[in-house]
Design a protein around this nucleic acid. Structure first.
Lengths: 222, 222, 222, 222
DNA sequence: CATGAATGAGACTTCATTCAT
DNA sequence: CATGAATGAAGTCTCATTCAT
């Protein structure tokens, strides 16, 4: 189906399909790169295909050889990005013998990833972007193509939390909801970075999220 | 009462145009109402002025008598809404003798307000919308018009947190950053409500935010 | 509804609506005229709205103030033309005391009308054009907007034939089918005119149709 | 047998390219078949070469190895079809000892042929299609390629009529014009069949044309 | 001979904005 | 103050045609 569905694992050998469609895929990726750049610069509606074509160095008509639509192009970019994110997350949580350490690793890695891809993720912040485009296209297509990818990330995080709860380390809250909260906090860090970008360091912010999310604002009685 | 720029914060002197516009401001409000409705239904670019005019019951040209632009109209709606929010926040924090209780009140009231205005706030989620429109207009205009209003809210919250810290109740974190985090968590609640809207109650979610934000995920040793 | 539905009678006083929408209707008619000209010059798909706008002396966007679509514009032109035709037919058959004379009058008048509007009617020859556009739009819209107008003409002719049959003047054939045949023969005359346009006279062709349709090819025994 | 330009008329020498193309002509025919199918389904402009290539099972570029143009392809299909028709007509009129019987045979055979090929002939109804496409290509090319084929059919019919006139069986009308009329009536039958396709039989319609064309609408005095 | 890939040209449609009345 | 009418500019998408391989 979707030709860039992530492998969700450690698989590195994507040289398997190098024979038949190798340079067709190359062009497709060039376009995806260009689109990612343009969609990162502008709102979905402000991004124009002319610019994507320009950046990709192809004709506008060529875009339609590889993607059905503008929205299809956008969703393809989003899919690719979310797959990358999921891989990061999976790698972070591969070893969850220590739930607290895992959560900390998760926060750092996710924050790093978001920070690296901040421009693009402004658009599809959390699950919200399915609302943003609702009037534009068949809502189902969006829902079916990206929601699973988003939930994949949430579910992985929720699993770690559940594990911690079973170990008696974490409080009894709905794990999935807590996972959402965590993602949200990480996103907020990006905002903080944007607002005062001169001197702040990424790790500082990671610590803030850790502190709030793990310990809360209230003073702990020793 | 303030006309469309709230006086609830630092800025006080916006009574300058009180004289001339006077009665025409009623029509201005009608248009704002219509615009709010339309902008709540659709994305900024999907919302069309034709519909705003229709809903307001005026001609499209009339919109330009009261607002410079489409973006001006949008920002005016946002301003008005944020003013309302600031008033809510101020009321919530009027008495902050007990910081913990105040934070709880703040969470509940903000959540209620967001919930009541969910449709509109999906568009200007957090402080992010200044990024979304950056290509469209002079970024400075947006920054200058809405950022102060957003920070007003953040600052009020931060004050409460600072107070709590001085009282030895709250941990030592950057109060402003913590305030951002709180807002973010409240927004996330809206998402949770949207994702499973059948049975969930608002207050349940408020409790979740309280728990996470105040106590954190880690088990407290008794 | 459709604002140029024919009055189907002798009504000449269309000054009734001269107050409110008088110059709006004027512009609409200008566009219709331009469209008729362009659609007469070219196939539906070859006719481009740019040219219609040019000929009408308005902007392309203006077309969309008065017509929903390209197809709507085309159908509006067709409706107007068919209404004119129906009026001609009705006038021709107003007095049908003598069926033979009426048929002859009908042939002459219809032929004259087609001849005057030959360019446009090339496209919607007979009932056939509903097939030509079938893939383009909601077939129902076409069917509902123009079929009645086409059948109106056929029915009137069929009535005359039925009358002649009742008087014992005409043979026993299906009147409606015969009416179709007559229309077809009249159209064929246009072809003949086109093929050898130098010296032929309209009335000669009318006589041919009369002869064939009324008397047939076979010699009559005296 | 002739390859794609029929020899059934005046033109005889089209065997010039018989040598080189030889076996490639089988693919050429495959393409023609595909094109006929697609052009029968849709309007000339709605038919797209992509689909022709698909149906033919060849690449779109291959079409251009066998045909100069889209219009060339279309005209080639039309030529082939008209050649078939001409053969039918010639067979029908091979024996014209009895003009009346011959005309009847002609009507039946032509009607059958049109009925079998109704889909395609909707497009090039009568001789009219040379008008439909005039803006598209050099009008002369169309005129020169298909008009002779059309006239071939007309001429054959006209010969039969002339013969009948010489035998004193038919009235004195222009034979060629009468032949046109006849063709037109046959086409009209197809329309009638389309309009009420449930119960009608082809032969019934043939009788109607016979009656009208041969005897006319007027009652014959015995 | 065959084709996958690419594209230029152009069509329809939309919408924020202006202006004469 | 209000608006009906008009439009320039722009955007998405299509398709016949070409060309290197």
């Amino acid at each position: 189906m979707c030709q860039n569905v992530c492998d969700s694992g450690e698989s590195t050998d994507n040289i398997k399909e190098w024979d038949r469609k190798h340079d067709s895929s190359v062009k497709r990726d060039i376009i995806l790169d260009a689109a990612e750049q343009v969609f990162s610069d502008k709102d979905y509606h402000e991004a124009v295909l002319d610019e994507v074509a320009d950046v990709a160095g192809v004709s506008k008509a060529t875009l339609y050889l590889y993607f059905k639509n503008k929205i299809d192009l956008f969703l393809s970019v989003a899919e690719r990005k979310l797959c990358e994110l999921n891989e990061v997350i999976l790698k972070s949580t591969a070893d969850c013998s220590d739930p607290v350490a895992t959560i900390k690793r998760l926060i750092t890695d996710e924050l790093t990833f978001f920070s690296d891809n901040a421009a693009f993720f402004k658009v599809i912040h959390d699950q919200r972007f399915n609302l943003q485009l609702r009037a534009q296209v068949n809502e189902d297509e969006i829902r079916e193509r990206v929601m699973p990818l988003m939930f994949s990330k949430i579910n992985v995080t929720a699993e770690v939390i559940k594990l911690g709860q079973e170990n008696g380390v974490f409080q009894a809250v709905n794990p999935k909801e807590a996972a959402f909260m965590l993602t949200s906090l990480v996103h907020t860090c990006l905002l903080l970075l944007n607002l005062a970008p001169e001197d702040v360091v990424l790790t500082d912010k990671a610590e803030l999220v850790e502190k709030i999310f793990l310990e809360g604002l209230l003073m702990r009685k020793t």
